[in-house]
Design a binder for these strands. Structure first.
Length: 322
RNA sequence: GCGUCGGUGGUAGAGCGGUCAAAUACAAGGGACUGUAAAUCCCUCGCCUUCGGGCUACGAAGGUUCGAAUCCUUCCCGGCGCA
């Protein structure tokens, strides 16, 4: 019998159709009405907690295909510094949204969102389950919450001009063209103010579009590690990074024309990194990730220092919402 | 032993009579996030607080002063120089 999108049928009310995973204990007695929302599994969490491995494990069990949710693994040639999964580690599970962008140019959430939405449809059409896996909260929310981004692509020239202005100047400009947005924007955050101006210049005073959740049921699994464990893991990973040739990777990037400024934007691993610096920055980053994820009450958290079995996740999935 | 310079909050390090619970940096903690998101930005960081303040603090003990992290004395500890 051909496997279908196995998790199809996990309803938002927490009930399920029978036969899932062929595990008896998950069967329900009465037949439930067919539920139309296809299920997508999301594996998220802090860096170095083993998300990729877990995603592959799940994928193996349920005919899954993995979609990366990592804002830097999206780029080609950023392999070592981003801790990108290797071909071998993929264990022949299809992975998407890896190596699709040129590091010379900025890739944006909106592009990501578009690509992922296509991919999800494709995977579902094949009867498989999409598994979104990554640590970039914003990217994950763009998909799971259905954020609607205004149709205003980055305006390089405008940004260049605005970057030179002071915080106050920028704020004044924004206030003039979109006083509403100016009310609650973080004035000190120039990047945000510039983007707000960019939007307002193109569209005028347009209220922010409400996010519209996509027609899928998301099962969000969060992986976390106790601080000590995380630190150990990160130290190990960073050491390996340097051993594997991070510096060489940077050299190569430079050779292909990636500017210093761009390298800086690509993260602390790519700009004059030292092991100590990368370790401490990674830990800080991990904290920021948690700040983001904490807000999402739909996440089922698992301690990655304990063995995480897919069975457990299935349990979570079946219980979700109840 | 004599001389000399110094001992400041988790660390480094400024302050050298009042505006000092003490600059700044780092570490730590919390937070924001709608097209750069490992980016960008904010807040807290002696203790207590009814958020007005209150209390204890700049090696220790005394002293001078209306007032001391800041000046003096002694002591303890460290660096350096001379013996």
């Amino acid at each position: 019998m051909k496997k279908r999108n196995f998790l199809r049928g996990f309803a938002s009310d927490g009930e399920q159709t029978s036969g899932i995973f062929k595990l008896k204990k998950f069967r329900t007695k009465k037949k439930l009405p067919f539920l139309h929302k296809p299920t997508i599994i999301v594996v998220l969490g802090q860096t170095a907690t083993g998300k990729s491995d877990l995603a592959v494990k799940i994928a193996k069990k349920i005919n899954g295909e993995i979609i990366s949710a990592d804002s830097r693994q999206i780029y080609k040639n950023l392999d070592i510094g981003t801790g990108k999964i290797t071909k071998k580690e993929m264990k022949s599970i299809p992975h998407y949204l890896l190596d699709v962008a040129n590091p010379k140019y900025k890739f944006t959430v909106a592009e990501y969102q578009k690509l992922v939405e296509e991919k999800i449809k494709e995977i579902l059409a094949r009867g498989n389950t999409p598994i979104i896996c990554g640590g970039t909260g914003f990217y994950i929310d763009a998909i799971t919450k259905g954020i609607i981004f205004p149709e205003v692509p980055p305006n390089k020239n405008l940004r260049k001009i605005l970057e030179k202005k002071s915080e106050i100047e920028l704020f004044k400009i924004l206030k003039k063209i979109d006083s509403e947005r100016a009310k609650n924007i973080d004035i000190k955050n120039k990047v945000r103010v510039i983007r707000a101006i960019e939007i307002a210049k193109a569209l005028g005073k347009v209220p922010r579009a409400e996010a519209t959740p996509p027609p899928y049921k998301f099962i969000k699994i969060g992986l976390y590690l106790p601080p000590d464990e995380l630190k150990k893991k990160v130290e190990k990973r960073v050491k390996k990074m340097f051993k594997d040739g991070l510096l060489n990777e940077i050299k190569k990037l430079k050779k292909t024309g990636v500017s210093d400024k761009r390298l800086k934007e690509l993260g602390f691993e790519y700009y004059n990194p030292t092991p100590e610096k990368v370790i401490s920055e990674t830990l800080k980053y991990a904290k920021r990730q948690m700040t983001w994820f904490k807000r999402d009450k739909e996440i089922r958290w698992l301690d990655a220092s304990k063995s995480v079995t897919t069975k457990k996740i299935i349990t979570y999935s079946t219980n979700s919402g109840s």
